[in-house]
Design a protein around this nucleic acid. Structure first.
Length: 430
RNA sequence: GGGAAGGUACCGAAGCGGUCAAACGGGGCAGACUGUAAAUCUGUUGGCUCAGCCUUCGUAGGUUCGAAUCCUGCCCUUCCCA
């Protein structure tokens, strides 16, 4: 199965330029995906592009990851309704280094193979490119009419646009187009890949290559990842799902995939795992025999968590999930040794309270809404208790005038508070 | 520079002198059901020393027994004309 066939059955191709597949059959090619270094970690929204590169390398071609140091300073107008904030160079450099380290988990940058992956940074060739040279050598080849016809531009200068569009953002597609030209010349890179929203920017690049050096370049875009319920992929109430364990704990990461709907899981498992078509068909068939078991989500979460973090982190996340969502009782909780206990609750907000105050017996209101900020007000705590939504150490706490004392202490120094089903808080006694 | 409209709780949006801690919708949170899902149903959604009190309707003053509601200044937003 070649690269294009592989991506096709996985549902990862939205649009492809005629001739791309033929070219890739004929020779080993280089292709690139651009990544904006707006933060010092990738999030799962970047994962599709990264997976495209992964498949590219697996099929014997050469992946290039372009870190957009220069373009990141401008901001891509595609899909944006307002002008972007600009990043300074120091932040960019820091972000770039962090991204490089994360990409190394997916792509082989080290081995002495002909299709070894490479990271390039457009800041390196853009920063010394003078404005005058740029508009003379590059701008000359593309008409404003052509640039204006792009959807991303039309949207911003149309009558219904409120904020308008700066010249800086307007130039974005030309700068990105130049990246492609540069890589075409320097790295013999003939294909650019990206999300469906990048089609306009990518074609500016192929157009530029055609006009400037009479070369032929190609494009592949993947569909934007959606959710069946219309929500935004990769976002939860608490924000983005990051690959960096400091930003999103492996447990939260695992939980994200585990909570995906059936419809979405069917799509995602093809895109985000390397499981073969047969394996996936099997899993889907098994899943729908007993959907409540959620085999599909479990497999999806396992594959991605292991790939992004590690087998160990994955196993810890499963263990934590069993305790947090299973029928664990306060009895079982207290049986956990301290190391396991802490590992399970890694990432759960922790509050410190004076030990002697609890041993003497403390009013529930004072403990949860005064000594700690688990509840922002006593009124809210009261409501939660009335609604049967508060548990201490996995057991319902229903008395709004209750007292918490030494018999609630686990492992000599912990109390586990739970708001609803999913929100845990750890109180450490000091 | 001229003219018009408007700023209400997380968001949208009613209220236009007392019965307003403020309708309604969305969102959030919690409960039931369930598959840690979706859909649905229920409760809740300013704070407190909680049948009462305190702080909130852009902001600062004023009128009034009483103001989100009336008046004045200021700030901000949007639209139309130049």
């Amino acid at each position: 199965m070649n690269f294009v066939e592989e991506l096709t059955w996985r549902g990862m191709i939205h649009d492809i330029m005629p001739g791309t597949e033929e070219l890739m059959e004929k020779e080993m090619i280089s292709a690139y995906v651009g990544i904006d270094p707006t933060a010092d970690s990738l999030h799962i929204g970047h994962l599709v592009g990264v997976m495209m590169l992964k498949h590219l390398q697996l099929s014997g071609h050469r992946p290039l990851a372009l870190v957009g140091g220069a373009t990141g300073m401008i901001g891509d107008p595609s899909g944006k309704s307002a002008e972007r904030n600009l990043l300074d160079e120091e932040t960019l450099r820091h972000n770039q280094n962090a991204l490089k380290a994360q990409l190394a988990k997916f792509l082989d940058f080290e081995s002495e193979i002909p299709n070894k992956a490479e990271i390039v940074n457009n800041y390196d060739w853009m920063s010394n490119f003078s404005f005058l040279d740029f508009i003379r050598d590059i701008g000359k080849h593309i008409t404003v009419n052509y640039m204006m016809s792009k959807e991303s531009v039309k949207k911003r200068i149309g009558a219904d646009s409120k904020t308008g569009m700066s010249f800086t953002e307007f130039s974005y597609q030309l700068v990105q187009g130049y990246d492609f030209l540069h890589l075409y010349n320097e790295k013999n890179c003939k294909v650019q890949m990206g999300g469906a929203d990048q089609w306009g920017n990518i074609t500016t690049g192929t157009e530029l290559i055609r006009r400037k050096v009479q070369g032929e370049a190609f494009a592949i875009t993947c569909p934007l990842i959606t959710k069946a319920d219309g929500g935004k992929f990769g976002k939860t109430e608490s924000g983005n799902i990051w690959l960096d364990p400091e930003r999103t704990t492996p447990y939260a990461f695992y939980q994200f995939w585990l909570n995906v709907s059936d419809e979405d899981a069917k799509k995602y498992i093809k895109i985000f795992t390397l499981l073969s078509k047969d394996e996936i068909d099997n899993i889907i068939a098994e899943h729908f025999k007993e959907p409540g078991f959620r085999l599909l989500q479990k497999k999806l979460a396992e594959e991605i968590t292991v790939m992004v973090h590690s087998r160990d982190e994955y196993e810890m996340a499963v263990k934590a999930s069993k305790i947090l969502f299973g029928k664990a009782t306060s009895d079982e909780l207290s049986k956990l040794n301290e190391a396991t206990f802490l590992a399970v609750f890694d990432g759960v907000p922790v509050f410190e309270v004076n030990k002697s105050e609890v041993e003497a017996g403390i009013h529930i209101m004072e403990l949860l809404a005064d000594k700690t900020t688990i509840f922002p007000s006593k009124g809210e705590l009261k409501r939660t208790i009335k609604g049967n939504g508060l548990s201490i150490n996995k057991e319902k706490f229903t008395d709004e005038n209750g007292i918490v004392d030494s018999k609630y202490i686990i492992n000599k120094k912990y109390i586990l508070a739970q708001k609803g089903k999913k929100n845990y808080f750890l109180i450490t006694l000091v």
